[in-house]
Each structure stands twice: as C-alpha cells, then as structure tokens.
Nucleic acid binder design. Structure first.
Lengths: 331, 331
DNA sequence: TATCGCGCTGTAACCGGTTACAATTTTATT
DNA sequence: AATAAAATTGTAACCGGTTACAGCGCGATA
C-alpha cells in the first residue's frame, strides 16, 4: 500500500510538500503541485485516514444511540442525522441499544476511547457517570430531566393536551390512554398533557383507563384488548405512538367495533403508515428528520468548541386530524 | 488527557510494561501488574483507540450501505448486522444512500481510505471500480448479478412463484403485479417468478397489469389506482413489498372495494405491520435479521483472511397466508 | 563456581501522516 | 549588484500506542 513517503520519492520532493500539496495547495508552487499530483496519481495514493485522525485527534465520527431502529420514527430521525452529518463531513456510528443501559454505557465508551468525537442520545438515559465531565453530547427526542447537554425535542405535554382536547371537543367523556414505557420522561410528559386536558374539561381520569405499552403495535393490540372487555368501555383512546394506535385499531376491528363509529383512536408521531391504514390516523406530526438535523448541528457546535450553544430547542408539532377520530357515539 | 507514558511514570515502569499489563497480562509479573493497574486507575487512563487502530491497521469498523433506513425491512437487517458486529467487536458505520450511486461510491471510500475494514452492500450496485481489487465486501438482500464477493439472499424468483401460485390455486386468473424499482435484479427475479407461475398455469401475462412502484406505501397506492379504474379489473394483486401492499389495500378500500372479497392482495417481506392491518397480509416472510447476521459473519471471515468463504448463501423464505387473499370472486 | 535458561523488564523503532522551524530560492527594492 | 523580504521547500519532532530485540536477575545444573 503506498504511503506519503513513496509519493514524495516518486515526485522528488519531501513528505511535507506532498502533505501540503493535498491539504493546503496554496502553500505550494503550481509547478511542484503538478509534480506531486502526478505522483499521487501514479502511486494510486490515498491518505490513510486513520493516521490523519490519530494525528489530529479528531475522528469525525459521531455515535448515535437509538433504542430501536425498527421503529420508523427513529428511522426518520436517523435519516436526518445521517444526511446532516454527511454534509458536515462526519460519519455515523449507529448503535441500536434496545434501551439497555449497559449496552449504552458500552457504546458511550466509543467516545471516551476516542473513536468518536461526540454522541447523540435518543433516549432519556445518561450513559456517562455524573462525576466525570460529559463529553460532547446532545440529547434528542426522549429527553433527560436534567440533561447535562443541549437537547432537542417537542412539547410533548402540550401536544398530548391538544390531542386529548380534540377528543373532548368531539364529545368524548371517557378517554383511555395507551402509554409508552413507564420510566420514560416522555411518557410522563404525555401522560401529564392528557391529564391536564381532562382536568381542564372537568373530567376525572379513571385509573382503569391507563394502559401500559411499549410503542410496538403488539403492545397496542394487547392494551386495546383490555378496553374491549371493559365493563364501561371508553369511546376514545389516545395512544402515545402510531404503532400502538395501529395495533389498537386492529384489535377493535377484530372485536367487531367500528373505528371511529364505536371508538375513536388517536396516535402520536405521524409515521408514513398513519395515512395508509383504515381509517387513516389522527395523530401528532413530529418533524422527525429535523430532530436529527438539529441534533447534529448542535453536537458539531459543541465539538468545535462553540460557546453558548442553544441549551434547549423545542421543535414544532402539529395536530393532524384524519378519520380515526369522530364525534362520540350517543349514549 | 492521560496517556501511556504518564501511566508508566506513575507506576515507575516503562511504557512497554504498561502496554503488556493491559494487552498480555500473562507476560507481566503479578506484582508489576498490580502496580500498573493501580496507576491506570489513578490516572483515569483509557487507551486511545485511534492510536491502537492506526498502529494495528485494523479499524474494527464495518460500513453498511443501505438504500433507505425508513423501510422497516432494512431496519431489521440492520438490527441483525449491528447485533452480530457488536458481539464480534466491530462498530457499524451506517450509510443511508437513497440508492444514489455517487453517494455509495463516496461512502465506499471509507474503506479505501482505511476508516473501515469492510463493507456490506444491501443494494445491487458495486461501488468499487471493476479494475481495482475489491476490498472486503459482502452483498446482501438485493444481489448483484456477478457479485465480486460473497452474497446472502433468498430465492426471490421461487418465493414469488409460490406467492403467485397461491393466488392461482385460489382460482384467480387475472393477477396484477406491482413491482419494485425497475433496474433492480431483485425486481427482475420477482417478476420472473410471477411470470413463470402464470405460464406454468397456462395463463397469459397481461402487460397492462404490470405496474411500476418503488417499495413505498404511496407508490403502492398510486399503482392500485390504475387497477381500480381498469376496464377489466384483476381479481388479485401481487406486490413486491408489504409497504406497497398496504398502500394498495388502502386505495382499494377507499374506492369501495372489499379486500379480499373483490380483490386479493399479497405482499412481500412480512414486516411487523403486515399482521396489524385489516385484513392481515398474505406475504413472503424473509429472515431479515438473519440476513444481517450472516452478512457480518461472512464479511468478518473475508476480513480475517479466511479461505473458501461460502460464495453464496440462500436463506429460507416462507409463504405466510393471512386474510388478504381469498378465493376469486365468481364472475 | 561457572554456565545456561528462563522470566521479566526496558529501549527504541515503527505505523503515516502534520507542522514548527530552519534553510533555501525567488522576487522586490534601492 | 547588493540586500531585504517573501515564497517555497526540507528536516525532523510529534501524536500514542505495539513489539522486536536486548539486557538483567535469579535459580538450576554440572
């Protein structure tokens, strides 16, 4: 494999001149540069990036911790990350962690061992111990409570409030909630928005209508099964993800209920399938790709030592009303 | 940041001894090792992996070229890649290429510039020029015709043959096909399986029932629209992806057709949503995670210089019959 | 006691670039 | 033509590990 010394020999110049011809061509006379470029060509020389990175102590790699890539919402966030990183000359080390703390700590070591310059965490977990100073990090989507780094998110509480209010305005009085994973601040925020909307309307939250889920279609399906059999069945369900909403809709239909005739279902995320199922889902649209773009932009600012990086960014969400929600059935 | 020389000084030994205490502890006396480990602890020393990689000329990084991560089938493949790579001590550089040749060539340079040891290509495109020797590479899912490297795939032709035959056995005589992207060998293989099944049953393929698509729900929806208005509407449709099948089903339902009462729809891939829509999709199940696992296993064999790496692996598929296909309506 | 072998440790070269600094050549100025 | 200034090029240190090779200390053997 040819290296810079071989090229220098071929061109009859020093290694410094070769390096400069490639990195800072304006420092080299046109004649010399031509000689070097020719030698580079003849030798089929490509600088060894490992050497460059080692020398410069900058890897231009970013670690991305994602709980599950199989969720299309995260897939879109990753697309945004990837695209922005590429434009800025960074590569993405993708780490699918299944939400396991230990795996995340493991991957976070890619930064401490200098295989990456920074890390984007899409889950509410700090993979670094609280005592050592946090390396360049950005937390997006599912936010830590006291994040030691910039964060990028939406107003989950407000969005769920709007979604719930939409159902209340349609006349629903008994509204169930299929939640995300229990420990997540994101779940907590969405739950809070739901409850605030109920309270604002003078409705009482029935603990029996609070079902656990984990964002997958299957968990939505299972949760919905409890509602089908419920003695005093709700007329509407708010789901904390579209995937769960799709599972829930399927369960209701199999049980012979009409959506939204008998029961309205609302989702969260606005994944692509949300408009391609029957009925198309009412949901909260989140700018998934933009999460990724902004997270990378902030992270690079931190890496490059910019001061006063925006500590928290709230991106806009949008209530998208489709046909899975309708007026409450007369009682 | 502390380095090996600081640790050596702290422990009162040479750098070689520090290196050996960590890499090959059996070469060092227990007493010295203890001293070194203590110094490592006190210095908060973590070996700089860039230096290690540079020195060893092995990055333990794998590049993965994926046309689109937003497709849940690829997301599952990537999960499999990730998991296997992690176990083998490799990191994954994920590259979402949108199927753009130039972008793929660009990312492939990560290998030539030694930022990665090998590459997994999930699309039928060789990002390296034919003349230079191909670096460690494995081609999975969508296979190149004359791949210069090991491949991992399923029997697309056979699978589509089975799927089509299933419809024929249900009495369908006019069967449409919503295809994948035109240039792909995968599309070609699936088309061939479809046509062979028709021929074997003595049916003639109607070119008007061959609709283009690109694997997205939207393209399935659009293609289905042509069928709805067709003068001599088919009674069944084979789709080359579940996503398109879901789009097609939605289109038919919106047009007032019953699935499968008026028209049967079959998909391909068996994504998670396939069983959570109405009606649940008949489809071909592919071992997506296993694609990733096997691809990584083969790639590492190539990287580590193993001889006689299996040149082609065909993984098993399975016809999954659900409720989106049924007997052809009486005419 | 001299010699050998073994286990452990140290010295220094090396991987392939970048860059501070010195040396040399070219250009400008008088 | 002499000199100063600017532009170009070269030398060698450096990044932080790994490892070939050499050296040392100690017990075993003759």
């Amino acid at each position: 494999m040819s290296n810079i010394r071989k090229v220098a020999e071929l061109a009859g110049v020093s290694v410094a001149t070769v390096s400069r011809s490639l990195a800072t061509p304006e420092m080299v006379s046109p004649k010399t540069r031509a000689k070097v470029l020719d030698a580079v060509e003849r030798a089929g020389y490509r600088p060894n990036q490992m050497a460059v990175k080692f020398r410069s102590q900058r890897t231009h790699n970013l670690v991305v911790l994602v709980p599950t890539i199989a969720n299309t919402f995260y897939a879109r966030v990753i697309s945004g990350i990837q695209e922005t990183a590429r434009k800025a000359g960074y590569s993405v080390l993708l780490c699918n962690t299944q939400g396991q703390d230990e795996v995340e700590r493991d991957y976070a070591r890619l930064v401490s061992s200098r295989q990456a310059d920074g890390i984007i965490q899409l889950r509410a977990f700090n993979p670094f111990s609280d005592d050592d100073p946090t390396p360049p990090m950005v937390n997006a989507c599912e936010l830590l409570d006291n994040a030691p780094c910039p964060t990028v998110g939406i107003d989950n509480r407000g969005a769920t409030y709007e979604l719930t209010r939409h159902l209340i305005e349609l006349g629903h009085r008994r509204i169930a909630m299929i939640q995300g994973p229990g420990q997540s601040p994101l779940t907590r925020e969405r739950n809070a928005g739901y409850q605030e909307a109920l309270e604002a309307a003078g409705l009482e939250a029935d603990p029996g209508l609070f079902l656990p889920g984990n964002f997958t279609p299957r968990s939505g399906f299972e949760a919905a099964r409890h509602l089908v059999d419920h003695a005093n069945r709700p007329t509407a369900v708010v789901c904390e993800s579209d995937e769960m909403a799709i599972g829930a809709v399927q369960c209701f239909k199999e049980a012979g209920l009409r959506v939204p005739g008998d029961i309205s279902v609302a989702g969260f995320d606005d994944i692509e399938f949300a408009s391609f199922i029957d009925p198309p889902l009412t949901t909260i649209s989140q700018p998934a790709e933009r999460f990724g773009q902004e997270a990378v932009a902030r992270l690079i600012e931190v890496i490059e030592g910019k001061r006063n990086v925006t500590p928290h960014q709230t991106l806009p969400h949008r209530l998208v009303i489709r046909r899975s929600t309708a007026a409450a059935p007369p009682r």
